[in-house]
């Protein structure tokens, strides 16, 4: 069909779909991540929200928390969008395209947690929002440095080993994904998991984990 510089990109390629300059691909590694993301996206679509019960300590009294249907619909929408963004980030074959998908994961993550009325959770969502915004600087900056120093953004060219990608660009990419995926800040994630709506909150964790696995592959292969 057309000539790609390599047929062996992170293992034997299983399927290639070209969108102009952006050639998405499935290798065993990315296909495994893709399937994983797909399973959780389907789970987000079909699952019902968690119903939380608060117990009054030292007595028999308890009260159940009501799930607002509007909130439920909004969170489900965000979780599905987050799943789709993760799917895209897993299979894309272009560095800048990957950074865009990562930003989308970041913003949907904010959306999932920002829907609550709880001041505490909103505050945490706000702080994550600021970090996600900041993260777009190293993320896009890393992609721009890759483009400037190698003259291409396609992973098919970059993975060959013929191109020397500066270390700072790789560090920027990892730093950016850290910010978007909030992955190293798990301590503070407890603030978010305190809120109800388990299957959708789960999407935050799954997406950041998968993003990390993917950026590791990109940085190592470049």
């Amino acid at each position: 069909m057309f000539n790609l510089p390599t047929t062996n990109i992170g293992g034997p390629e299983l399927f290639v779909l070209e969108f102009g300059d952006i050639v998405t691909y499935f290798s065993p590694y990315t296909a495994a991540l893709f399937v994983f993301a797909l399973i959780f996206t389907v789970l987000a679509i079909v699952s019902r929200p968690e119903r939380q019960v608060d117990f009054a300590f030292g007595g028999d009294a308890y009260y159940t928390k009501v799930v607002d249907p509007d909130l439920l619909r909004f969170q489900r929408f965000m979780a599905i969008a987050c799943g789709l963004a993760t799917l895209g980030a897993m299979v894309t074959g272009d560095v800048f395209n990957f950074t865009l998908f990562a930003s989308m994961v970041g913003i949907t993550n904010i959306g999932i947690v920002a829907a609550y009325r709880n001041r505490h959770v909103l505050n945490a969502a706000f702080q994550y929002g600021i970090v996600a915004m900041l993260a777009s600087i190293p993320l896009f900056g890393g992609a721009a440095i890759v483009l400037a120093s190698t003259g291409t953004l396609s992973m098919w060219e970059l993975f060959g080993g013929a191109m020397a990608v500066p270390l700072i660009a790789k560090a920027f990419l990892v730093l950016g994904v850290m910010g978007e995926g909030m992955a190293p800040f798990y301590i503070a994630k407890a603030e978010i998991t305190r809120a109800q709506g388990a299957p959708f909150i789960l999407m935050v964790h799954v997406s950041s984990l998968l993003l990390f696995l993917r950026v590791t592959e990109i940085v190592i292969s470049m």
Partner: peptide, 26 residues
């Protein structure tokens, strides 16, 4: 690069919009 600036700009603006709305709610 001219073409890539546009997505970069839009991402920044959309995040700003969402985060400031979160700030107002907070």
């Amino acid at each position: 690069a001219e073409a890539l600036i546009l997505p970069g700009l839009v991402v920044g603006i959309s995040e700003l919009m969402a985060v400031s709305e979160v700030y107002i709610a907070k």
